[in-house]
Nucleic acid binder design. Sequence first.
DNA 1: CGGAAAAACTTCAAGCCTAAAGTTTTAAGC
DNA 2: GCTTAAAACTTTAGGCTTGAAGTTTTTCCG
Lengths: 150, 150
Amino acid sequence: MSTTSKDRLRLWLKVLKATKAVESEVRENLRRDFATTLPRFDVMAALMQHDKGLKMSELSGVLKVSNGNVTGIVERLVEDGHVLREKVEGDRRANLVRLTPAGKAEFARQADAHEGWINAAFDGLTADEAQRITESLDAVARRLENGGKA
Amino acid sequence: MSTTSKDRLRLWLKVLKATKAVESEVRENLRRDFATTLPRFDVMAALMQHDKGLKMSELSGVLKVSNGNVTGIVERLVEDGHVLREKVEGDRRANLVRLTPAGKAEFARQADAHEGWINAAFDGLTADEAQRITESLDAVARRLENGGKA
DNA sequence: CGGAAAAACTTCAAGCCTAAAGTTTTAAGC
DNA sequence: GCTTAAAACTTTAGGCTTGAAGTTTTTCCG
């Protein structure tokens, strides 16, 4: 129905607006408080969850970004001393990326602050609302993952 | 409470995931079907709503991006013939940006397809769910606009 | 074994984005 | 009128992002 379609478009614009607002707040805060960026934070978050390290390709798979993209971000994280690259036993093509101890400590501080910012942004949202939104958006994400076929 | 904070973080990650999925779908489709980009689409959408044209600064204000950013995007839209820049009477600093007739026609086609993509992405969402999400996220956006003070 | 195909990366070109600095024009205050 | 400040833009440097092309290693398989 035409009305429904317009309604969904309106919903999307709202979702986008709110998301961009939160995201740009997070970017500013990361820059101001930690002199880092969201992409770097995301890489470190992924590595934090994989203590044994991740190969470049696994990293780009987890973050759903291109291979070439990860190359540059990891490069800068290495310069920062937050991350290091190890040879992979038995495959000279691959690289294992890990957090350094300093990287882990730094990320812990960042993640803590990050959780606070998000908590503040979503302040006033009841657990019930949060639950419903989560479910609805999960469905959207799932549908797109399946190529819109389901 | 700590639990609530983690829950909100989880919600945020879900919102982000779904949003990125939809957005990247839209970007791909714009590229594939219209050889254009989301930023260009956004500029044209803003101009479509302001038939008398917008100054560069108004455009960056509406889209909430930096001035320098708009300079480049408009430049490319001019090359495409979708947009033109006019002198502003009485202020030689300013530029008025407008859609050309060709730009309007092209945008109409794009907007039509765009609505369809969004409609498909949010297929399965009831009007009721959509309504609730909209309200909740509006509150989030409003809070951040006020600098987190309210 | 030897060659073709695939895998894991990196590099490149082009575009997007921001903050900061620079230019030109207009407005304000004296 | 003159000087200073502000406004409207553009330019620049640095980083993110992608798709495509290129490199080196590994794997497949005949």
